[in-house]
Design a protein around this nucleic acid. Structure first.
Lengths: 251, 251
DNA sequence: CGGGTGATTGACTCAATTCAATTCAGGTGG
DNA sequence: CCACCTGAATTGAATTGAGTCAATCACCCG
């Protein structure tokens, strides 16, 4: 599986272990992402139990959390940072199926193994449970499955919208749509004025939108020439004409 | 919303009502799709209750079951036939996000309204519950949410594989991949020898694969010229070189 | 046997890719 | 502090795979 190297995933599943799980004495109820996370529906008593079962895990940018086919040992909740989830073809072509943000979970899978690759985009902190523990908690707390269902369904909705983008939009619409969704999704988490910050590389954007890096680059320039956005630097975008951007994004 | 006409969805949500719900006296336990459906995990007592709550609904090919934005009144399980699920851009461009087969459910949504269009491909029979009743059953039967979670997760997995196809495969790989998945999915339901039957039109295949009908047509011919498939008629495909087809499909 | 729809085929176009420089930005060490 | 290095991003030129447009064909169905 060395073709993943070409996408810069230097380390493995146990980046966590290497860095050491760093339990803190903060309670689950006070966790910054509690209200957004799967555990939001659990009662206080269960939360206390969770505190005994969880461990933490820190990654820096480009670290791989797990790869498709690895044994699905842990279930993770993102505390801070962001992740890219991807699938690969045998020859290395990559499709990023989504970006995961704080509060969201990663690593839930149907079988024994993970079904996608997960890599940190930035310095990130995760809270993890073993899949075994998670299943046990689920059995004892039926409301949790409902919560996981809702969250999985939200992801499915994103996936379906993204299929429409991949299959039926042109480059300009794809980029506009990407910028709009990035704005919407990060709105609640880190409001950075009117600038959209891009935590991912051009290559990530390309593999998310089904384009090449060259086309992504050219499309940003075209949107700039159309006076719809400005590009203060590589990692930031300022929206100058929101109406035009949204109307492009809608198709 | 008249652009949907161009995709041949002549009727509305209440095709059901028009045709009349046709309750039979068959019990849920004896239902042909019971073991595959969401209700497989419910106990006998609950199944008896379901029998009082459900109604049936018949559609013929091209009938629309519901459209994106319609009030999500019913939750449906497919008893026979097949459906296409799609999303539209305002100008009518369409992406088919998936095909639904007997045993699978359609119509589960996060909000008050359906989030995609659902149309019958063939004569079809559905079993339906009101969303209100379904929620009630869910509250009383926690194992049902787990079942819905698994089924939704399966759909999400298909969606992620399909994103890889849409974003990163060429026409030949897309068509090969489509034929392989059709073979795999229908294997358990209606085994029709070594012929794959295509219940959907070229236009449906095109909108599923993110291609045009012309390209789909040309690609079938190219696969035929490569001696990988034969085309006895428009609605059927015979696989002559499975190895080559699979290796194309993998990318 | 005509009419109509869906599928195929052909000729041409073009949006996006490919390949090849070039520029830019951030980090390092003298 | 600046020259150098490296990987990422941009830019340019040439290519091409899939799309568009326009017939034509094949098959139902009345």
């Amino acid at each position: 599986m060395e073709m993943t190297r070409t996408h810069g995933a230097p380390s493995f599943e146990d980046a966590c272990a290497r860095r050491g799980a760093t339990p803190t004495d903060m309670s689950c109820r006070d966790c910054a992402v509690h209200s957004r996370a799967f555990c939001a529906v659990l009662d206080d008593e269960t939360l206390v139990r969770l505190e005994a079962l969880h461990s933490y895990c820190d990654l820096s940018g480009e670290d791989s959390l797990f790869m498709e086919g690895d044994d699905a040992t842990y279930f993770y909740t993102i505390l801070s940072g962001s992740f890219r989830l991807s699938k690969l073809l045998p020859d290395g072509r990559r499709q990023i199926t989504g970006f995961a943000l704080p509060g969201e979970f990663i690593g839930l899978s149907l079988g024994e193994t993970y079904d996608c690759n997960a890599e940190a985009l930035t310095v990130s902190k995760l809270c993890r449970f073993t899949v075994t523990d998670l299943k046990q908690i689920g059995r004892e707390n039926p409301e949790m499955e409902g919560r996981l269902l809702t969250m999985t369904h939200t992801t499915l909705n994103y996936a379906q919208d993204h299929m429409l983008l991949l299959g039926r939009m042109n480059a300009k619409e794809k980029v506009a749509s990407f910028l709009c969704s990035l704005m919407k999704r990060t709105a609640g988490i880190d409001q950075t004025s009117d600038h959209i910050s891009l935590p991912m590389s051009r290559s990530d954007i390309a593999d998310y939108l089904g384009l090449t890096i060259e086309t992504v680059s050219r499309t940003f320039i075209r949107l700039k020439n159309d006076k719809i956005i400005s590009l203060p630097d590589h990692a930031r975008v300022k929206v100058d004409d929101m109406t035009a951007l949204v109307s492009l994004a809608e198709g």
